[in-house]
Amino acid sequence: MAQVVVFDEFGGADVLRIIDEPISEPGAAELRVKVQAFGINRLDQMMRAGEYPAPIRLPHAHLGVEGTGTVDAVGPGVEDFSIGDDVIITAVPDADTRGTYAEYVNVPANRVIARPDALDAVGAAALWVSYSTAYGALVEKASMRPGDHVLITAASSGLGLAAIQIANQIGAIPLAVTRSPEKTDALLRAGAATVIGPDATDVSEAARTHTGGAGVDIVVDSVMGPGLAQLATAAKMGGTLVTVGWLDPRPASFPMNPLTIYRYASFEHTLDPAAVRRIASFLDAGLRTGALRPTVDRVFPFAEVADAHRHLERGEQMGKVVVAHPSASAA
């Protein structure tokens, strides 16, 4: 038997409970991964609260779209992985039935990559969703180039910090937006060229000031909501807006200025093996040079997974919230 997190109804963090389930054998072309750690994502909270747009199969729904650990068993037809390999799980679109909030999870082998040597289990748990989403939004969709000014909302989140680092790796200029003035120094240390804080009466005006009146080339927005149209005016004419989240659940206002607009979800690339290879190569290069370094805000033990959700919901974190099994300390 092994422990797994489930929920039988939608609601707050209190609906999460840990139960024992049998350990199942991997099927054809699958691996069984002994999970060492996993990141907590806003997507997980939306699923738990009943706010996710896709159906969630209740009762006994699972959670978790990313994780890292070691290969524990190999199913028929798998040739690229062996028992004991350290791996990162890159996509779990059916997380409500086989999520990574567990001690063991069976996943298709083509949704697993080798864990970079530069990362331990906790660092790897903070890497994939944040950095693959930031890479996909900035590089694959927005075609970010050296010298581009990039405005990043919710900049202190795991995704926001990943976007700052990836912009710097490319040679772009990241402008960080935060509602928390106490995070300004940390964002500058993380690589932001400037920080637009809550004292700025108009984010768009502040962004134009920092770009000599031209406007930014790319806006990466995790918030959406009624303020989206105003935020979009920070972009120069013909610029690019990429939305990567919806922290504000209210309907988003539609920008009227001439822009290229993308509504980006990471599954667009993390379910594509060729795109996953590009992402993994890019991240490996950044990790080797030190341009990329996952920021972990806090690590919770598996037994306190509900507290990890509460911590993320308070919005006070700087970086990724991670949950780790005891085995992660030895990884």
Rank of each mutant, 00 (worst) to 15 (best):
W128S: 04
A167T: 03
V112P: 07
A73R: 13
E316G: 13
L287N: 00
V220W: 02
T209K: 04
P76G: 14
A186W: 02
S24M: 02
D14I: 00
Y101M: 14
V74L: 10
V244A: 13
K236M: 11
P198S: 12
G158K: 01
M256P: 00
E268Y: 15
Q36T: 05
M224D: 09
V6R: 14
R293V: 12
T133V: 05
K34M: 09
E268H: 12
D307Q: 12
E9G: 14
P181V: 03
G286S: 01
A291H: 10
S253M: 04
D96L: 09
G158P: 06
G12K: 11
V219S: 03
R277T: 15
P255L: 07
S204D: 01
H210D: 12
R314Q: 14
G69E: 04
W128D: 03
V139H: 01
M256L: 09
A252S: 12
E103A: 14
G319P: 06
A229M: 04
V195Y: 09
A192F: 13
A91S: 13
V4I: 15
P26G: 05
Y131L: 12
D72V: 05
S130I: 00
I40N: 15
D72Y: 10
P55R: 13
P76D: 14
S143Y: 04
Y264N: 11
S180T: 13
P76Q: 14
I166F: 06
Y135G: 02
G239I: 05
A308P: 15
P251N: 01
D94L: 12
E30R: 01
Q36S: 08
T178V: 02
E140R: 10
K236L: 10
A118K: 05
A114L: 14
S24N: 08
A234F: 02
H311T: 06
R277C: 05
I23Q: 05
A125L: 03
R293K: 15
G64S: 07
G12F: 03
I218Q: 05
A229Y: 07
G84R: 09
N110F: 14
A61N: 06
N106E: 01
I166M: 04
V78W: 05
V4H: 13
D96H: 13
V299R: 15
L287S: 01
A118I: 06
R42A: 13
D202K: 03
D297C: 08
E30A: 02
K320T: 10
P301I: 10
P251I: 03
A13I: 01
E140Y: 09
W128A: 11
P108H: 14
D221C: 04
G50L: 04
S204G: 10
V322D: 11
L43F: 06
A54P: 00
F7C: 12
V177W: 04
S132D: 02
P53A: 12
E313S: 15
A102C: 07
E103Y: 10
P53E: 13
P255M: 06
S143V: 05
T70Y: 07
N110M: 11
G123C: 02
T270R: 07
R111F: 09
A61E: 05
H325N: 09
G227T: 02
P198Y: 03
A285P: 00
L271K: 04
V150C: 08
